[in-house]
Structure formats: structure tokens, C-alpha cells
């Protein structure tokens, strides 16, 4: 330290180091690139979907126009993904809670490893598992639900004899997205500050009450984020659905246990594309556009849900 400072003549100027500038530039470049790619994909989908949208209805596969073709597929996609999420989210959260707050340390590390491994299994393996192992074993269950819960539209029957139903497809998807939801929930639950957990315990909370007071609210946005990632995978899943779902074109039904089901967009594209040409391809691309828009909408909604209570997120 010197005591004689030269009088300041120039106004202070923000100094930016070369490294900072390089990093800022490349980060910005990467961001722009992502947007460009996204815009490119969207433009491709729209441009190639247009011929199908303007074509006369009888030329489109099914002979009734694009909407009656894409509608049931979209319905099937959303239904299968919804079943998957309804099953997998509570289960994933429960497993994550068990891993972070109930299981002994040793067991938890082992199990967490297995869960991460599950996430890396390719979907075709899940598809095979679904059709070879799961579907036949669900047949008696479908018979039972038809007999006892047949008054509900979901179980109206007739029960499939192969087990290749919407319910089976939803369960296979659920097993596929479970590791994602579990892994992300586990991550956020493990990050809940000790301070908050002890605050609840010191008030006389039981372990479960502590989880409800401190852990779940804190992990809420993480749970939603995990569910959205899972939803993304479920909406786009192709092979597993193509294998385990017995479909008939144009069906729209909430009946989950019969062998007459709508297909999903991704599975339909995979199955139909090799034999398509001309306007058929454009129709498939239009269905792809629909899937793109749904995914976008889901993400926007999820973000809005998370942001609505951002003040209370614990992040500030």
C-alpha cells in the first residue's frame, strides 16, 4: 500500500479481461445456436406439413383429412404419457424420499446407483420387457377389472387377451420415466438445507411431518422439472409403444384394457414412415408438428406453475 495516490484524472472504466470476453462471446454464441436449431426444426415441420394441411381430405391417409388423422394419435400420445406420469411421479417421489430420508446410507447409495443405471437402459429393452414379460402377466388383472370395475369407462373392456393395451403401454412408459423422476427428485431432496429440516424437527415434527414441511415444498420445482423431463421422454417414446400397443387407426377411447387403442404420434411415424411417400409423409410430419407443439405447451405450463410461487421457492 502506498499513501501517495496519483489524483484520478480519467473516469473509471470497467475493465474486461480477455478470458471474460471470450467466455461471454462463446456462451452467447451457444445460446444463439440453440435458438437457430430450434427455429430451423420448427420451420422444417411447418413447411413440410403444409402440403398435407392444404391437400384434399380424401388424399390424406384415412381419407378424412389431417385433423381426423392426427387427432386420435395426439389423444393416444397424451393418454399414454398421462398414465405414465400419474403412476411414475408419486412412485418416483416416494423412492427419492426413501433414498434420502429413510434408507440406511449404504443401501441408499447402492439403490441410487441402480436407479441411475435404469435411466440408461435403451427403450427397446423396456419394450421387449413389456411385451414378453409384463403384458401377459397383466391379462388376468384386466379380466378382473373388466368384471369388477367395468362400470368405469377406463375398464369397460372387452379385456385384451394379449395384454397389449393402453394401460400396459402406460406402465411400460412409467417404468421408463421412473428413473428420471427419481434421480432428479433425489437430487433436490438431498439439497434441502439441514437448517430447514432441523427447524421442523425442533418444532416437534415427526419425520413425515418434517418431510411435508421442509422437504417437499423445497423440492417442489425439482419434482415438477423431473416430471416434465419424464413427460418429454414419454411423449416421444417410439419403440416401446410400437412393440406393446395393439392399435387400430382412428380410435379415440378412454378404455385402457381393450386391444382397440389409438396409436401414439411417435410410434405411428416409426411404423408408417418406411412405406410412405408423397402426401403421406407430409401428413406424418404434420403429426410431428402437433407433437412439437404439445411438448412446447407442456413446458410453458410447467414453467408457469413453477414461477407462480417463485417467491416461495426457497431460492432467495
Amino acid at each position: 500500500m502506498t499513501t501517495t495516490n496519483a489524483p484520478q484524472t480519467q473516469p473509471p472504466r470497467a475493465v474486461r479481461r480477455l478470458g471474460d470476453r471470450l467466455f461471454a462471446g462463446s456462451a452467447r454464441g451457444a445460446g444463439v445456436l440453440i435458438l437457430l436449431v430450434l427455429a430451423g426444426v420448427a420451420a422444417f415441420l411447418v413447411i413440410d406439413a403444409v402440403p398435407a394441411l392444404v391437400a384434399p381430405a380424401r388424399e390424406v391417409p384415412g381419407g378424412r383429412g389431417v385433423l381426423p388423422y392426427v387427432g386420435p394419435l395426439l389423444f393416444g400420445t397424451v393418454l399414454a404419457a398421462a398414465i405414465a406420469l400419474v403412476v411414475a411421479t408419486p412412485l418416483g417421489v416416494a423412492i427419492a424420499l426413501f433414498l434420502t430420508h429413510y434408507a440406511p446410507r449404504r443401501l441408499a447409495t447402492g439403490l441410487a446407483y441402480v436407479v441411475d443405471l435404469l435411466a440408461a437402459i435403451p427403450s427397446i429393452v423396456y419394450g421387449f420387457w413389456g411385451i414378453v414379460w409384463l403384458a401377459p402377466r397383466l391379462v388376468p388383472f384386466y379380466r378382473w377389472t373388466e368384471a369388477h370395475l367395468g362400470f368405469l369407462p377406463f375398464f369397460a373392456g372387452p379385456a385384451s387377451v394379449t395384454g397389449k393395451t393402453m394401460f400396459t403401454a402406460g406402465l411400460v412408459l412409467a417404468v421408463m420415466v421412473l428413473p428420471i423422476i427419481t434421480a432428479i427428485s433425489r437430487e433436490v431432496f438431498a439439497q434441502v438445507p439441514t437448517l430447514h429440516r432441523e427447524a421442523a424437527l425442533a418444532l416437534g415434527a415427526t419425520r413425515w411431518e418434517m418431510i411435508r414441511m421442509a422437504v417437499l415444498p423445497y423440492g417442489r420445482s425439482g419434482i415438477i422439472g423431473g416430471a416434465m423431463l419424464g413427460l418429454g421422454r414419454a411423449l416421444g417414446e417410439t419403440l416401446a409403444i410400437a412393440l406393446v400397443l395393439s392399435v387400430s387407426a382412428g380410435t379415440v377411447t378412454f378404455n385402457l384394457i381393450s386391444s382397440t387403442n389409438p396409436s401414439t404420434i411417435a410410434a405411428n411415424i416409426a411404423l408408417q414412415f418406411p412405406e410412405s411417400s408423397g402426401i403421406d409423409v407430409n401428413t406424418l410430419i404434420a403429426s410431428g408438428l402437433a407433437l412439437f407443439l404439445v411438448t412446447l405447451a407442456v413446458n410453458v405450463i410447467a414453467r408457469a406453475v413453477v414461477n407462480r410461487r417463485a417467491d416461495f421457492s426457497g431460492a432467495n
Binding site: L195, L203, G204
Partner: peptide, 28 residues
Amino acid sequence: VDVRRQIGMVFQRPNPFPTMSIYDNVAA
């Protein structure tokens, strides 16, 4: 759990529940 309901505790670092309102913190 019963012991902690009878013996309250205030920690060195303030630890209100960040996900709750002021009211809900007191009512917790």
C-alpha cells in the same frame, strides 16, 4: 417428538421456512 414440542429451540442462523409465508411460519 413430544420432548421437542415442550422444549423449543432457536438456532444460530435464522431458519424460517422459505417456502412458507410469515403467517404460516408462525402457525407451523
